[in-house]
Nucleic acid binder design. Structure first.
Lengths: 255, 255
DNA sequence: CGGCCATTTGATACCTATCAAAGGTGGTGG
DNA sequence: CCACCACCTTTGATAGGTATCAAATGGCCG
């Protein structure tokens, strides 16, 4: 099912870079070209740079590097994280096919976090200067770009709510339900999927330790809400998980 | 010093609305028109809607209301917060003069959180549809708008780092240092200012209880790092506070 | 002056981090 | 093919930081 697509790991970077084509991309209904007509998709294709393949753990860009391009995930998964002066690291998001990387770099002309592939992956490079030129000619594209940036803002607000107010159990339920919904939107199973990230990554993202994540997995399994085998997860009681995630389960009295 | 500007509290909403003028606004070097030449500022002035005054605790917009306009804070302070199904509330930010409200609403055509005035305040209404029209004619404005949105994304990532990784003491230091820097950028004292928000608001924003915030204030005072009298704060040892905020103080070994 | 609300301070409980060790898993090389 | 090793994950015991519960204090406004 959610098996990673395989290709030779030999190519180091963008060797044999292929010109991207949005029209032919299976993600174009989720990605930047969403809602564009054929003519406008072609104009977008004109400016899209090369594709780039990354192997597991390879870094797409690093914090502090000059910002030139956004990247659209074609397949695979990424994590983005920042590190502060004290070395504290926080994963700010996990990105999957059809999602855009690098929007936090626009304000400072430098990438604001690191982006690393969680598995063998491929991205489309979108030179931002050329995208800006295109905005003047394709208002639909501009409007959609604003929606994507705004979505990223609301997504982060939801994480703030999670980190600021929720217990470990609720955080983890939110995490699972969120992955489930995103896979559903991509035509994959909403109840069976592989976690692309380590327990440590999950814990870091959720503001928990690796041990807590492990305990949560065990507890959820014992309760019969999920099945777990290594990184493969099966949601046995999605409704229950959603209730926990929403906070409408047990605890809150709700007047 | 940081005394609020007073005006009659009688006007309920946008009674006696005044046409805004960016050119004459003291915030135009921090706000949307930043970097525009006179001609472009005038074009922006054409589309800016009326100003709106709000009294303390008055709501500018509510979550779920249809999105029409962004709002630029002219003076005063706001908080934005969201509430989830279980009634858990999270303050997602405090906004001051020159900052933009409502960018999280673009993606869904509805406001994604509530915005409430922390004191008597005034905003400029910026009808988003008209702003979008202007983007096609004033590329500088569009570029700056993208920077502002991107800045909001990075700001929220910093809050994620705070909520996910930092102890109460560090969170609170980050909070004070952040306010200090923003007041400095506006020409106010970076060491003496009034907190516009209640202890409860601070706690909610930082993922702490009101009691913890109160204890932190007492501890910081006892350490001689700050002076506190009600909501007036004086930073006595900004360097120490910055070190704590950065995490480079005491704890972390740093190799 | 009195009442209400915000804030402070104290005692205790709980959740999750931390420390520690065992158990699995995957990869490498003989 | 198997043995070995490094690393990830699980599980247990304990500690620590905040939340929670409770009560006192103080300030503001009617």
């Amino acid at each position: 099912m959610s098996q990673a697509i395989h290709f030779p790991n030999s190519a180091p970077v963008s060797l044999g870079a292929i010109k991207a084509s949005c029209a032919a991309c299976s993600m174009h209904q989720l990605c930047l070209p969403m809602g564009l007509d054929d003519a406008d998709i072609n104009r977008l294709d004109q400016i899209i740079g090369s594709r780039r393949r990354l192997v597991r753990d390879e870094r797409l860009y690093a914090m502090g590097e000059p910002f030139r391009s956004l990247y659209a995930v074609r397949y695979g998964h990424f994590k983005t994280y920042q590190i502060n002066a004290a070395g504290e690291q926080q994963i700010t998001g996990f990105q999957m096919a059809g999602e855009l990387l690098g929007m936090d770099a626009i304000s400072g002309d430098r990438y604001h976090c690191d982006a690393v592939a969680l598995e063998d992956s491929e991205v489309c490079e979108i030179p931002f200067a050329r995208l800006e030129e295109l905005f003047g000619h394709v208002p639909t594209l501009l409007r959609h770009f604003h929606r994507i940036m705004s979505q990223e803002i609301t997504r982060e607000q939801n994480v703030m709510l999670l980190l600021g107010n929720m217990r470990a159990e609720q955080r983890f339920a939110v995490f699972l339900v969120n992955l489930s919904a995103r896979y559903a939107a991509r035509g994959y199973s909403s109840t069976e999927f592989g976690l692309r990230m380590s327990r440590e990554d999950i814990g870091n993202y959720l503001g928990l330790t690796i041990e807590s994540v492990s305990r949560l997995l065990s507890r959820f399994k014992k309760q019969g809400w999920i099945e777990v085998d290594k990184r493969e997860v099966k949601l046995l009681d999605p409704a229950k998980l959603k209730a926990i995630a929403a906070g409408t389960d047990q605890c809150a009295p709700m007047s």
